[in-house]
Design a protein around this nucleic acid. Structure first.
Lengths: 209, 209
DNA sequence: TAATTATTGAGAATGATTTAACAAAACAGC
DNA sequence: GCTGTTTTGTTAAATCATTCTCAATAATTA
């Protein structure tokens, strides 16, 4: 039974399903039951069926799920076939690392441009992505539809930069700075990656295992 | 009333409290009530008090919490004053970026060494951290107490490398590869950072806002 | 010093998520 | 085609997390 409001907990599990199904596909597995998928992923079969049932009926009784089909369905739900456009702001070490190694296209994203203040990187091309000066940003956004901005800039300028971009109509942010970005506007989406938070939870678990 | 088993949800909020309190400290704020802290963080005062009460009584009725004191308490719970030792395996773009920009010491970690297969980085020193050849890893681990290994290596060698390290007694992993590392051993802790998962949840929310 | 206000920590109530149970449907072997 | 087995999607139960409420207590003010 399709649901109206999907909880965040479910949404955050979808990419993991997608990852596991991609792996199964590559291993040539054709069908899988919720039970075996659960064993591989270390979650209950019940939860898997409950999660999928939020979006439709993808399995067949007595058979299970067709791996390739299910992967396509979840990919579709996640929007990997949507051709999103993305730009990066800040081409330091981390920005460079992402441009060179992160498989944006596998998630349905095209990286159209990068921007930086430093004259040593402006004018270069990193893995087919041209790096422009910050002064060209406003004009670029007027000319191009941009779905997501990756923020790999220093913390000090993060909220100001975000505010500026929101005013220019940007609706999605992938934020790597160590502050909690937010906006009053309800249709602006932030996804924050806090390296330090992650390391601190590990620190806690090591101290309290 | 101190609790025995702290839920994961609570633990994952602790670093955010710590971050916010650090910010308040820097702004010179001396005391704060659960109510105002909640307003700043966009969570209920109730949840804050409930969370803190898992670990003890840090506030005072009619007054609130002393910011500096509370920060120290939460830092202590997270183990930032524990002097953890850490090594990195894989000094590509991402490894480089972390070594140069990530403030390990702020989370209580000292980076003792890095390891890589590439002869172009072996022998170099990145931000005071010496890079050794992989062949020296086993010997290094025999000589040094290492709490956490950062894995910034290609996916293809991730699980094998992790297994090898587990056999050598490593109990903590900060994993940046795109696979879900795991171990049968219950006292081995993994903290996985999946960039792709994060971007895909953003993709979902953009498509379904 | 007494009255008023602010605020915590704890327990109860509510809400959300996860797990269990099961009828219905499809498959597999004979 | 019949019989037993597998496995789904859904409903119900159990568990877990969050929010509400309030007595207790400290600070502040008059």
């Amino acid at each position: 039974m399709k649901k109206e409001n999907i909880s965040d907990a479910v949404i955050r599990r979808l990419p993991r399903y997608y990852r596991q199904l991609t792996d199964l596909c590559n291993r040539g597995v054709v069908r899988i039951s919720s039970h075996s998928l659960g064993q591989e992923m270390n979650i209950t079969a019940s939860q898997i069926r409950q999660d999928f049932s939020c979006f439709g009926e993808f399995g067949q009784q007595g058979y299970g799920y067709n791996v390739e089909e299910l992967k396509a369905e979840i990919g579709h739900i996640l929007g990997v076939d949507n051709d999103h456009h993305l730009i990066m702001i800040g081409v330091g070490n981390l920005g460079h690392a992402l441009l060179q190694n992160f498989p944006f296209s596998q998630s349905g994203f095209t990286v159209d441009a990068a921007f930086d203040v430093s004259l040593t990187v402006v004018g270069t091309v990193v893995n087919h992505v041209p790096v422009y000066a910050m002064s060209e940003l406003d004009h670029f956004l007027q000319e191009h539809a941009v779905d997501v901005v990756v923020l790999t800039i220093p913390q000090s300028v993060a909220q100001d930069t975000a505010n500026h971009l929101i005013n220019l109509g940007v609706k999605g942010f992938w934020n790597f700075t160590n502050i909690e970005l937010s906006s009053q506007l309800p249709d602006v989406q932030f996804e924050n990656i806090h390296f330090a938070d992650s390391l601190l939870t590990l620190s806690y678990r090591i101290a309290n295992r």
